Simulated assay, not measured.
Amino acid sequence: MSTTLDVSRRAAAQAQPNIALIKYWGKRDLRLNLPVVGSLSITLDTLWTRTEVRFDDALSADTMTLNGKVDAKQLKRTSACLDLLRARAGVTTRAEVISENNFPTGAGLASSASGFAAMVMAGDAALGLRLTPAEQSVLARRCSGSAARSIFGGYVEWAHGQQADGEDSVATPLLEAAAWPLSVAVAITSTAEKAIGSTEGMNRTADTSPYQQAWIDSQDADLAEARAAIAARDFERLADISEHSCLKMHALALAAKPGLLYWNAATVAAMHCVRGLRAKGLPVFFTIDAGPQLKAVCLPSAAAAVAAALREVPGVLNVVETGLGGPARLIPVADLAAA
């Protein structure tokens, strides 16, 4: 089998970040990036990553450019992801990766999820692999756990799986975005990259948090409750279980040694704001990933009021309004240049 490509091959893809309503936190296998629990998410619409992958025999090494700057920090993970695609294709050709985010990177907004989902889809197309969405999801998971979910749109569940090889740890779509439209107001409270990344935080939590086993034991029931809420289009039920899962995840991390505190003062103020709005009858709830940004999920009829209230919270720098988005998709390479 050839170890190089005969010609330069390139493709570009766009993927949206997702936010977990039933949280993923913890790995059962670090090498394969297998989660210790299943998770359930919604894919966002107006936030995106666009990535071009160009394989070229003339390159002696992989390169990575993110938001117009060479990103040496991400190059190791990028090459590891490309290696998975190269192994599928039976080639060793190096690649140039150019990626753009239209939202803060590494700040708790799932930029790695959308980034690696876009990279896998673009790399698949550039190499002509013709992978199925499930196969793309498995490869994306190997690169960044939550990227498994960003291959799909709408409501998505990622199974923790049972097999040692991880082939059954794959994301599957539950419901298309248009089938139950929701709105999300993302309260940006910091644009800085978080001090402790998710992988490091998960490992510390697994090693030191006394709540780790309780987290694992309760996850299946939480997933079943969220699935039922989505199937019934029951917003209040989904709100209750989503906030519960969010606060459990952060309690788990807070109890690590030393404790992981991903929130800032504005995050907490925004939580109180959302709780206050809900007490007044607005259909809204919050969720927060491993970072300081709060996502307020609401029915579309409440979107304007929720966004306006969050903009008044001290310390909130910006509020990004979005609906639910579709799956990752190929785009013309020219779209990346225009980003």
Rank of each mutant, 00 (worst) to 15 (best):
K69G: 01
A253S: 14
G106D: 07
T208Y: 07
Q16F: 15
S8P: 11
N264I: 12
S60M: 06
Y262M: 05
P104M: 04
I241Y: 00
E243P: 02
V170W: 02
A125P: 07
T208P: 00
V320S: 01
N203D: 06
K257A: 10
E157M: 15
D57C: 06
V316W: 13
Q293K: 03
D45L: 13
A187T: 01
E321A: 03
D207N: 12
T65D: 11
I288D: 00
A214T: 10
R311W: 02
A164G: 01
L34A: 10
Y24K: 04
R237Y: 00
A58H: 11
A148Y: 02
H272R: 13
A232I: 03
S198H: 05
A118T: 06
D57Q: 11
A195T: 13
L330S: 09
R130A: 15
A251R: 05
A334N: 02
D124W: 07
D335T: 14
M121K: 11
T172L: 09
A206Q: 14
T3F: 10
D207Q: 13
C273W: 04
I22C: 04
R141F: 08
A177I: 03
A117H: 07
V306S: 05
A266F: 11
A228R: 13
Y262V: 07
L75E: 06
T267G: 08
P283Q: 15
P35G: 02
H244E: 05
I241L: 00
M119Q: 13
N264H: 07
A147W: 08
P314Y: 06
A89Y: 04
T199F: 10
H160S: 15
S218Y: 01
A140K: 02
L260G: 04
P283I: 00
K76G: 13
R204T: 03
T199L: 11
L21P: 00
V319H: 08
L317W: 02
K194P: 02
P173Q: 12
T49S: 15
G197C: 02
D45K: 09
V313S: 07
I98A: 14
A178N: 12
V313G: 13
E200D: 12
E52W: 01
S137K: 06
Q163M: 02
H272N: 09
S144G: 13
L139P: 06
P133I: 12
S245G: 00
R77N: 15
A179D: 15
F152H: 13
V313Y: 10
L131M: 15
E52V: 12
I331G: 01
R130Y: 06
V319I: 07
G326K: 02
P314V: 12
V37F: 07
A164I: 09
H244G: 00
L66R: 10
